[in-house]
Structure formats: C-alpha cells, structure tokens
C-alpha cells in the first residue's frame, strides 16, 4: 500500500516532466517549424531559413525624431553602431540569391550595449496569414505544390498577394525596401505607448531586375552570390544607405494582425539613416553567431501581441541551437565541411 503510494507519486512526477519536455503538447512546435523549413537535406552549420547571406556593419545615425515616442537609446540623436546581415529566403546556402522570392535585412544595433535592439526585416510588408499554425500550413502547401489552393482558402492573404503581384525585384540588395512586418510598441519616458511598424527605405535609385537574371538564361546561368557580389562592388564605391522609416498606427489599426497593410495616410517619422560601410562573407564574421531574434528589444520598445512574432522568436531559437551544435561538433572533430552559418 505504502509502496503503491510511493510508486504513484514518482510515476506522476516523471509523467509531468515527460509531458513538459514533449513538443507534441501543441499543434505546431518550434521543432516542427524548423524540421519543415530545413528540408530533406540538412545544410550543416547554416541557418534553417535564409541560409544564403553575408555580414554587413555600419552606423545608424539617429535623427532624434522618435525620441518623443521611445526612451530607447538607439532613437536618441547620435551615431549608433550595428552589425547586420543581408540574406534571401530558402534553406540552401548555395541557391542563386537573385532567384529567391524574398530578400532580408537583419540588424543588431548597439551590439555591445544593454540597450541592444535586433530586427529582422523582409521585402514583403505583410504576411499571407496571421497565426503560426496557418503559417506552418502555408509552408506545407509550398512543399506540396498546393499553395494556390491554400491562398484561395485564406482570404486574409489578399494584401500579401497584391504586394506580390506588384513587386519587381531590383538588381541590388541596396535598392530594396525591407519591412518589420510585425508591429511593435514604442514606449516613451512618460510610459505612453504607440504601435508602430518600420521599414528600411533605400536611398539609392533602383533598376528593376531584367527577367533574364531572374530566370536561367543560356548565356549567363544564375550564380549563388550575384547579389552579394553586387553589394560588395557597390560598397567599394561608398556607403550604402537606408532611411529607417516608422509608420505610426492610428486607432483603426490592429497591431496584432500582420496580414493587413496600414493605410498610406498614416503618419510617418524618419528615425534616422542606416549607413552600411563594410561587408564580409558570413563565415568567420560577427553576424554569423547572431540569431536576429525580433524579440531582443531594449527598454523603450515592446512586442505587440502578434502571435507570429512570438513564433518567430521560438523558431529562430531552435534554428540557432541546431546550427550552433553542428558548428561545435565540427570544431571538436576538426571537420570543416560546413562553410559557416547562414533566417534567424
């Protein structure tokens, strides 16, 4: 009887731990996401999404225009260093960058400070769907070639599809617009909050990509890093700059829904200018070690309730863990097969 009680208590404790450790408690876990994103061939040591990319660095010259909205150091007038990364969507680090449907600019501002701020921005301004579970189904639909049916079944994808139809890829990372997609709150010294989204808006004039370079032409097959080479060449002529433009939500906007574009009439503020002065291969350089987790926020910026934002952080963390483990094992075994890391 007393043995029975003892065994029952121990069994209950073990069951509680096993349940907590299981990733099957929810319909979709961070592990499920990364398993789907990484595909069937694991690219050891690389990011599970946005594997093809490279490091950049420079300074953010803050205008001070956001100081009334946020107490964050990064928005106070001055020059703030950043480490960043340009990349394209996809799990293959050697797939031609110019052919990817989405390009990204990720930043870690003030990397050595307690007021550090990370943001991972993409070319689309909105997402097709607004929850992690639906996003997971979208990835499955892409894999199964049923994406047209998926979009038809999800009317909230209208804004995204409209963007996609109008989007013309340019010939450079330097001439794209990169969006925060999710909304955040700026908090000022008085504790007032303002919902915002932001975008890095290029200073350089763009040239639309010829259809030849986007699709394989006989004369010039697309290479892994033609966009990367273009940016390296461009940087040799001088800095590449973007304005960091914040759009303020009005009472009509929902900060938790990343599928809806805010009206173009919303007020905007230019927080400052991003000045990129250097670029390097990702392997062996600083951006490689970083997970551009959009929830690494300083005092003065807080996440919105957007469920996608939380899921991004959890999935990025799983991807970061996997590639860090692989890089660790390579360094222990002296096997240098992987060329480094590579959408966190």
């Amino acid at each position: 009887m007393r043995y029975g009680a003892l065994l029952a208590i121990i069994a209950a404790i073990i069951a509680a731990f096993v349940y907590a450790a299981s990733d099957k408690r929810q319909p979709v876990s961070a592990q499920d996401f990364v398993n789907l994103q990484q595909g069937d061939v694991i690219q050891q040591g690389f990011r599970r999404a946005h594997a093809n990319g490279f490091c950049v660095s420079g300074e953010f010259i803050a205008s001070g225009a956001l100081a009334e909205y946020s107490s964050a150091t990064v928005f106070q007038t001055g020059r703030h260093p950043f480490i960043g990364r340009f990349s394209v969507a996809g799990n293959n680090p050697t797939a031609p960058d110019v052919k990817a449907p989405v390009r990204s600019l990720a930043l870690t501002l003030l990397p050595d400070s307690a007021a550090q701020w990370r943001t991972a921005m993409n070319t689309p301004p909105v997402l097709p769907v607004g929850t992690p579970e639906k996003f997971y189904q979208q990835l499955q639909a892409i894999k199964n070639n049923t994406i047209a049916e998926f979009f038809a079944a999800h009317p909230e994808s209208a804004a995204f599809l409209q963007w996609r139809a109008s989007y013309q890829p340019t010939q450079s990372y330097a001439t794209e617009q990169y969006h925060s997609i999710n909304a955040f709150y700026l908090i000022n010294n008085a504790g007032q909050q303002q919902a915002v989204r932001w975008a890095a808006v290029p200073s350089a004039a763009s040239e639309t990509l010829s259809s030849d370079s986007q699709h394989d032409s006989q004369q010039e097959p697309a290479v892994t890093d033609s966009l990367q080479q273009e940016l390296f060449t461009r940087l040799a002529q001088g800095p590449v700059t973007f304005d960091l433009v914040f759009t303020l939500a009005t009472a009509n906007d929902n900060a938790s829904d990343a599928t809806v574009l805010w009206p173009a009439t919303n007020p905007q503020r230019i927080a400052g200018q991003l000045v990129i002065t250097a670029a390097n291969e990702q392997k062996g350089h600083q951006c490689d070690a970083l997970n551009f987790d959009p929830l690494v926020l300083p005092a003065g910026i807080q996440p919105s309730e957007d469920p996608i934002l939380r899921a991004r952080a959890a999935a990025y963390a799983e991807s970061h863990r996997r590639r860090a483990r692989e890089v660790l094992l390579e360094s222990l075994t002296g096997n240098n097969s992987a060329k480094g890391a590579g959408d966190e």
């Binding site: 450790a21 979709v28 876990s29 961070a30 469920p307 939380r310």
Partner: peptide, 13 residues
C-alpha cells in the same frame, strides 16, 4: 525551461 523551447505560444516570451 522544458516548455518554452518548443512552444510557439504567446506566453513564450
């Protein structure tokens, strides 16, 4: 610790 590494839930952060 065990729960937060797999959850995509809003309370994860």
């Amino acid at each position: 610790g065990l729960s937060m590494v797999s959850s995509l839930g809003p309370w994860q952060y």
